[in-house]
Computed example of a mutant assay.
Amino acid sequence: MQPSDRDEIRDLLKRVAVALKQGDVPFALCGGYAAWVRGAPEPDHDADFLVPAAESERAAKVLAEAGLEVVDPPEDWLTKVVQGGSFIDVLWRTCGVPVEQDLIDRAEDMPVLSVHMPVLEATDIVVTKLMTLDEHYCDYGRLLPVARALREQVDWDRVRREVAGNDFAAVFLVLLDRLGIVELPVNEG
């Protein structure tokens, strides 16, 4: 990514957050930029926001009314906001599950590039990233720096419970244990 591309994404991230705030749409920064705000490396691609599924249509309307270019992609679980060659995803489903208000409510208000906005908590960031793992996408290399950077902020017991049904996520937790990044509990019995 060229520095100008990163600047464009950062600018668009701020503009989307301000529009959602001014439109009183509940939202939270998620994904790679949420992890970055909490200490992980800055991502080299788009930024992502979550809105409750019940607010998805209103969110798109608020963004368009703010003068942002809103695009409806073929996927039925997100809207894209485009500026130049950059885009922001506004998701109302993650890992096939509708976003609920409680996920947004757990977000913490933090300064992001001089704009205060809700940022997904570290545990939810890790859970949502791990739940995307499957036989078609299983890039542990992108997840390791995030897990390492956020490890003290994460409730790893909750992560284990929430990703228990995803074998790819469970194996990643074993990898974290073997690398000494996170210690798994010893199985008793």
Rank of each mutant, 00 (worst) to 15 (best):
Q101T: 08
R161F: 03
V126R: 01
S4I: 14
H116K: 13
S4H: 08
Y140A: 11
A169S: 04
M1E: 07
E42R: 13
E65H: 00
R93W: 02
E135W: 11
D44Y: 10
I181E: 05
L150E: 05
L13N: 13
R158I: 05
P185Q: 06
L143H: 05
G39P: 07
P185M: 05
L113T: 07
F172N: 00
A149S: 15
F172Q: 04
V97H: 01
A53C: 08
S86N: 08
E55V: 02
V51C: 05
K61W: 06
F168D: 02
M131Y: 08
L50C: 03
Q153S: 15
V171P: 07
D102T: 11
I104N: 01
A59H: 03
F172E: 03
V127T: 11
L179A: 11
R148N: 11
D24Y: 05
V159M: 06
W156N: 14
C30S: 15
E8I: 04
D72W: 14
P185S: 08
T123E: 09
W92L: 00
E65W: 00
T94M: 14
H136I: 09
K80C: 07
A60W: 03
E183K: 14
P74I: 10
W92Q: 03
R160W: 01
Y33K: 12
D155T: 09
A149R: 12
D167M: 11
V119T: 06
D89L: 01
A60T: 11
V126N: 03
H45Y: 12
D46T: 06
P3T: 09
F168G: 05
L91D: 00
G85R: 06
D89Y: 02
D7Q: 13
K14P: 08
D46Y: 01
M117T: 08
V163P: 03
T94V: 14
W36G: 09
D76V: 12
S56T: 06
L120M: 11
I104R: 00
P43V: 12
S114G: 11
